[in-house]
Simulated scan of single mutants.
Amino acid sequence: MNLFGNTISSLESGLDFSATKAKVISQNIANIDTPNYKAKNVSFKDVFADAKENNLHAYRTNPRHIDFNTQSTHSGVLNYSNLRYRNDGNGVDMDKEQANLASNQIYYNALVDRLNGKFNTLQNVIKGGR
């Protein structure tokens, strides 16, 4: 029996993805001056597309539901950029990385706020509404 439903585990997966994306963005920024460094990116869409190609299956409660049995534990697919922004072959665009970092931070904060709301609701239930 799943006591809290799938919401908390979904939020946890989202936080894992966001943390992975933040690490990749940090690596890109740290290697801004490394010659021939290729920028990396983490994409959830690519994970979904990859799973879809590999016959994604899931638990069906009704025979009329779509067959989706396996669950993927990926937090994202790592892609390399072939673009070069400088003569030394470096593929990191600092403006793009900073925008990605800000966007990822907003996403992370929204997930944390939602998770805090879930825990506050549970705490309220445990205390009996007091």
Rank of each mutant, 00 (worst) to 15 (best):
residue 25 I to H: 00
residue 80 Y to C: 11
residue 40 K to T: 07
residue 71 Q to D: 13
residue 59 Y to G: 06
residue 112 V to C: 10
residue 115 L to I: 04
residue 40 K to D: 04
residue 70 T to C: 02
residue 74 H to L: 11
residue 89 G to C: 08
residue 30 A to W: 03
residue 58 A to I: 11
residue 105 Q to I: 06
residue 63 P to A: 04
residue 65 H to Y: 03
residue 66 I to H: 15
residue 74 H to P: 00
residue 28 N to Y: 05
residue 99 A to L: 07
residue 52 K to P: 10
residue 89 G to S: 03
residue 68 F to P: 10
residue 95 D to L: 06
residue 115 L to H: 01
residue 29 I to M: 09
residue 91 G to F: 02
residue 65 H to R: 07
residue 49 A to T: 05
residue 75 S to P: 00
residue 102 A to G: 12
residue 113 D to K: 13
residue 124 N to S: 12
residue 64 R to Q: 01
residue 27 Q to T: 11
residue 110 A to I: 10
residue 82 N to P: 01
residue 48 F to L: 04
residue 81 S to W: 00
residue 81 S to E: 10
residue 44 F to N: 02
residue 27 Q to Y: 10
residue 99 A to G: 10
residue 106 I to C: 09
residue 101 L to N: 02
residue 106 I to F: 09
residue 35 P to T: 07
residue 100 N to D: 02
residue 125 V to Y: 11
residue 96 K to M: 07
residue 50 D to H: 09
residue 68 F to W: 08
residue 53 E to D: 09
residue 61 T to H: 10
residue 40 K to F: 05
residue 99 A to K: 06
residue 26 S to Q: 14
residue 119 F to T: 06
residue 46 D to I: 01
residue 103 S to P: 03
residue 70 T to I: 03
residue 102 A to T: 14
residue 88 D to T: 06
residue 92 V to G: 08
residue 99 A to D: 00
residue 98 Q to L: 09
residue 29 I to F: 05
residue 95 D to M: 06
residue 69 N to L: 12
residue 36 N to Q: 14
residue 75 S to A: 06
residue 83 L to M: 05
residue 27 Q to R: 14
residue 116 N to T: 13
residue 62 N to R: 12
residue 62 N to G: 13
residue 46 D to F: 01
residue 82 N to T: 08
residue 79 N to P: 00
residue 64 R to F: 01
residue 46 D to N: 06
residue 83 L to V: 11
residue 118 K to S: 04
residue 54 N to L: 12
residue 96 K to S: 02
residue 107 Y to Q: 02
residue 79 N to F: 11
residue 124 N to K: 09
residue 95 D to E: 08
residue 92 V to S: 01
residue 61 T to N: 15
residue 30 A to V: 02
residue 64 R to L: 02
residue 27 Q to G: 13
residue 56 L to K: 08
residue 31 N to Q: 09
residue 33 D to T: 09
residue 88 D to L: 03
residue 39 A to T: 08
residue 53 E to T: 08
residue 120 N to Q: 07
residue 99 A to E: 07
residue 88 D to V: 03
residue 94 M to V: 10
residue 33 D to G: 09
